[in-house]
């Protein structure tokens, strides 16, 4: 009996020891993430709160004025021609950008997945634009698409003079509010540059997704007499859905926040056909010293990104637990 009792006691002690170790581990791990919690609390959430506070104030000159303005800054924004144009441009840019990035990314990924020769080489070629910053992309594509340089110069030699890069046309251009609603032709130029840069990312994602689908599944489907097209539609696409959603989320938040590409490439554009909230925010705040209006634009941008990100994060958490 005695040894048994002893061992039970020993076990108890061990458990207690373990518990204190666990508690200590928790304490230390907490201490080690404390700096980043503090930094994020101040520099991210603190400043978001501050921006929100400023956006409700009357601070619209170099002299700070924190008196409460209510939603005045937001209301005047939505009545503003430039901001309405920004919302249209962002929506058009986002839709075209996501559709093209997904479509071309999937196409290239499927092509690369065919166990072709020089796969590595091709993969690197497609990924490489990702290594550039949007500023570089903007400058390069501006040279390429500018009416007085690049491809248009070549086309001019043949007798075609396309002015779409500087076009102020909006198709179909239905009058709504203060603006014409539709697809501004000039936005397409920016979409081309953005797609060129970001397609590599969706290729990488899709390629990883395709590689993760076991060959057995396809084999089994083939044995059951499914055609290649059916395999894609019924097996591969559904299995790629989570990846597609991730890519959409990431591309959506890139396109809602886009600033550098537009700034380097076209600027606000004639009649604001290529303007986006990011550029407007920068000019309002740092050129015009309209700090409250600028903050209001920033908050609207944050909310629009949150519409995409928050449901995604919530569903991810559900999936984990």
């Amino acid at each position: 009996m005695e040894p048994k009792v002893k061992s039970a006691m020993q076990m108890k002690i061990q458990v207690r020891k373990k518990k204190t170790i666990v508690a200590k581990d928790r304490l230390f791990s907490f201490l080690f993430i404390l700096p980043s919690i503090l930094a994020i609390a101040i520099f991210v959430y603190g400043f978001i709160g501050w921006t929100g506070y400023v956006s409700l104030s009357n601070w619209n000159s170099q002299i700070p004025d924190f008196s409460f303005a209510g939603l005045k800054n937001y209301v005047s924004l939505f009545h503003d021609f430039r901001f309405q144009a920004d919302l249209r441009n962002t929506a058009v840019f986002m839709i075209l950008f996501i559709v093209l990035v997904l479509g071309m990314g999937l196409m290239i990924a499927v092509f690369l997945d065919q166990k072709i020769k020089f796969e590595n080489l091709f993969r690197n070629i497609f990924f490489f634009p990702m290594a550039l910053s949007f500023i570089v992309t903007g400058v390069v594509w501006q040279w390429i698409l500018n009416p007085s340089t690049g491809v248009n110069l070549l086309m001019k030699k043949v007798g075609i003079e396309p002015m779409w890069y500087t076009s102020v046309k909006v198709i179909p251009g239905v009058e709504w509010g203060k603006i014409q609603v539709g697809i501004p032709i000039a936005v397409i130029a920016v979409v081309i540059a953005a797609v060129w840069q970001m397609t590599g990312f969706s290729v990488a994602m899709y390629l990883a997704g395709l590689r993760a689908i076991p060959d057995e599944v396809r084999e089994a489907a083939r044995m059951d007499g499914a055609t290649e097209f059916q395999i894609f539609r019924k097996i591969i696409f559904p299995l790629l859905l989570p990846i597609t959603i991730s890519v959409i989320i990431i591309m959506a938040h890139i396109s809602l926040k886009i600033f550098d590409l537009i700034y380097a490439m076209t600027g606000p554009g004639a009649n604001f056909v290529t303007d986006v909230p990011g550029v407007y925010m920068f000019e309002t705040t740092f050129r015009g010293n309209y700090y409250a209006s600028g903050a209001a634009i920033a908050i609207i941008m944050l909310l629009s990104v949150a519409i995409f990100i928050v449901p995604y994060l919530l569903s991810n958490r559900k999936g984990e637990s």
Binding site: N60, F81, V168, P268, A270, N271, F272, E283, G288
Partner: peptide, 19 residues
Amino acid sequence: APEGVVTKVNNAVNIFVTQ
């Protein structure tokens, strides 16, 4: 004029050049 006015005039001019 103050920078704020300049920014607003710039916006107005940009629209006027087209419209």
